[in-house]
Computed example of a mutant assay.
Amino acid sequence: MSDSNTTIFTNPSTFILLGIPGLEMAHVWISIPFCAMYVIALLGNFTILFIVKTEPSLHEPMYYFLCMLAVTDLVLSTSIQPKMLSLFWFNSREIDFNACLTQMYFIHGFSAIESGILLAMALDRYVAICHPLRHSTILTNLMVTKISLAMVLRGCMLALPYPFLTKRWPYCRTNIIPHSYCDHIAIVKLACADIRVSSYYGLSVVLFVSLDVFFIVVSYSLILRAIYKLPTKDARLKTFGTCSSHVCAMLAFYIPEIFSSLTHRFGHNVPMHVIILCANVYILVSPVLHPIIYGVRTKQIRDRLQQLFTYRRN
């Protein structure tokens, strides 16, 4: 690895991932919860997809968005977890340059898609609670399809410049990435060139996607106002409990993502292992939380799960 620090090159064929700098000796121990979260994410999200597909009563806008969220979570976690676990377990640090760019595109693209889906789900909850009689006429299957396509296209287009910007820079100092996966800003920092274009574009994408948080906050503010107008205390508590769990799931996704993006650029005094761990949290934890919060806590899905387990016992 010491040769990689001194070799002069302009187009490296491979990059070297360090994992979590400063915690290399603990990689094996860190891999245990990471692996457990990946397995739970796979089981949980595939279960959501199976239940919604096989239960006709769940073919509604909320569950369509939930299926999209499950697919996005599966892609996000699978884009980094296998390589990360091989790094932690077998010290497999090398990653091909083009494979690194592909991983980077999937991470940033599907992160933006997931943010859009969370916004769409907040919109669905707003219409369902604030305008229940118009829900079926506002969120028709055609409208859900249009919203879904818009969110997917937005994420794909926002992430498209990342690999092209990254590939244009010369890398003449080192090919060692102090990260556990191919993050855009972590790679371009290795370039021996003025990377302000990449940095500014990455920051603008973060700020643009962060607008989703603003609209989600507005949606749930209107939802909370509608909740306090419900006639009974039980109805208010039930609806508030559902909305609060949804908000917690969104905070678990947005806070680590925004913190990681900003500290990579401006947090020079923040320890590197803290930045990398936060960067992993929003990709690894959200796919675990979403099936629990949006799935198990949803009565229709919970009832269907109970039916499946009861049928197998019989």
Rank of each mutant, 00 (worst) to 15 (best):
I258R: 10
A226G: 14
A252E: 03
Y171I: 03
M250L: 10
V206G: 06
I258Q: 06
R173S: 13
L222P: 00
I227W: 07
R168V: 03
T166Q: 07
A279L: 03
T263H: 04
I275P: 00
A159Q: 05
T263R: 00
S199M: 10
L207F: 12
S199Q: 07
S245L: 14
D194Q: 11
I195E: 06
M151F: 09
F266N: 06
G155Q: 03
H264V: 00
S148N: 08
C248V: 15
M272R: 11
V209M: 09
L211M: 14
I223S: 00
C172R: 12
H268R: 13
I216F: 01
S260A: 14
D194W: 06
I275A: 01
S261Q: 13
D234S: 13
P287A: 09
I187W: 05
C243H: 09
A193R: 07
V274Q: 02
L160T: 09
S244W: 10
L237H: 06
D234W: 05
R265H: 08
R236P: 04
Y200E: 09
K189D: 05
P163I: 05
T166I: 06
I276K: 01
N269Y: 10
C243P: 03
I255D: 07
C248S: 11
V274Y: 00
S245T: 12
T263E: 02
S221K: 09
I216E: 01
K189W: 04
N175C: 11
S210G: 15
L222A: 11
M272D: 04
A249N: 12
Y162E: 01
L262K: 10
F266L: 11
L165P: 01
C248L: 15
L153M: 13
V274I: 15
F266W: 15
L153K: 03
S180P: 07
